[in-house]
């Protein structure tokens, strides 16, 4: 099963997403902010998908995504952002960082699992 990294400073959200994904048999790792996420992405080349919050301490999700593309030069991994809003500017940055999707909170676990299945297959 594909490996997925969930990045969110809120353990509630993280646990929620993780339990949905684990329930479907995915191998899921967690990170508490963008910096932590970036370290984990660096050390794990087999990641297929990153689901990340936008607003986080230390490093926000968009910056992390940009670094994944520019520093790690990792084009193979899909990135999905968890968000509560999306301005055109955010979407622009996301597009440049190759972000595949935006999940607006409150999210629907089944929808996530269904779409993730398509993304990592």
């Amino acid at each position: 099963m594909a490996k997925i990294l969930v990045v969110d400073d809120s353990s509630t959200v993280r646990n929620e997403v993780v339990s949905y994904l684990k329930g479907k048999g995915y191998s899921v790792s967690e990170a508490v902010d963008g910096k932590d996420g970036l370290d984990k992405i660096k050390s794990d080349g087999e990641l297929k998908l990153i689901i990340s919050d936008v607003n986080m301490p230390n490093m926000d999700g968009l910056t992390m995504a940009e670094k994944v593309r520019s520093d790690l030069k990792n084009p193979g991994v899909n990135i999905i952002m968890l968000t509560t809003e999306n301005s055109p500017a955010m979407k622009e940055r996301g597009k440049a960082a190759g972000i595949k999707g935006w999940i607006v909170k409150p999210f629907n676990g089944d929808a996530i699992v269904g779409a993730v299945g398509k993304l990592v297959s």
Partner: peptide
């Protein structure tokens, strides 16, 4: 906003 201009997977999300 999350759907418009983005991949169709966003509609599912």
């Amino acid at each position: 906003g999350a759907c418009l201009g983005e991949d169709e997977i966003n509609f599912e999300f």
